[in-house]
Amino acid sequence: MPAARVQHVVAAVVCAALFAATLGSPVAGPEPIRCAPCSPERLSQCPAVAPGCAEALREPGCGCCLACALKAGELCGIYTAPCGSGLRCAPRPDDPRPLHALTRGHAVCTESPAAP
């Protein structure tokens, strides 16, 4: 088999593999990621929300339980309770490692910029 023919076959195999991998990807696939339903059994395992909680929101991601929302200026991250209404969890502007801050709960609940 000539070298040019081998290169074309290899390129076709690589393209087919990439195409197949993309179809199975939750990012590029036609279906979004779906969370499991919040069954009564799962809800019964949720801890109680503190009595003085001003705003209770669902846990981030696929969580079923309610958590007391964090206030402006409180530390937050991807594994913490959610920030309250009108707030978002963001690393400090001068933080040299913003992803580290988000994964370690060292980011801060800040006011969301107004939507255009």
Rank of each mutant, 00 (worst) to 15 (best):
D94H: 03
H100A: 01
V108E: 05
T110K: 07
E55I: 09
L66T: 12
E111W: 00
K71W: 06
L70D: 02
H106P: 00
Y79V: 09
A48D: 15
C53L: 12
C62S: 08
P96C: 02
A56Q: 15
E74D: 06
G105F: 03
S112M: 11
T103Y: 06
V108Q: 06
P98M: 08
H106L: 10
A69P: 02
Y79F: 13
P98T: 09
C109Q: 08
L66A: 13
T103V: 13
L66E: 15
S112F: 00
L70T: 08
Y79P: 02
D94I: 00
P47G: 05
P51N: 13
S112V: 04
C46M: 14
G77I: 09
G52D: 15
E74P: 02
K71L: 09
D95M: 00
L57C: 04
K71H: 12
H106N: 07
R92H: 01
A81M: 08
C64I: 08
R88K: 03
P93D: 05
S85Y: 00
T80Q: 13
Q45I: 11
T80A: 10
A107F: 07
R104L: 06
L75M: 11
R58S: 13
A101K: 00
R88H: 01
L43N: 11
S112C: 03
A56N: 14
S112A: 08
R58A: 14
C65G: 08
E74N: 02
A101F: 00
D94Y: 02
C68M: 11
R58K: 14
C65R: 10
A107Y: 08
T110D: 09
S44P: 13
L102W: 05
C65E: 06
P91V: 11
P96R: 01
A56W: 14
G105M: 02
L75N: 12
C65M: 10
R58W: 12
T110N: 05
S44V: 13
A67H: 09
C83Y: 04
P51G: 14
A54F: 01
E59S: 15
A50Q: 14
G63Y: 13
L43A: 14
G84Q: 05
D94N: 07
L57E: 05
G73C: 07
C89Y: 09
L102T: 03
H106I: 00
E111Y: 00
A50P: 11
S44K: 15
L57V: 10
P93C: 02
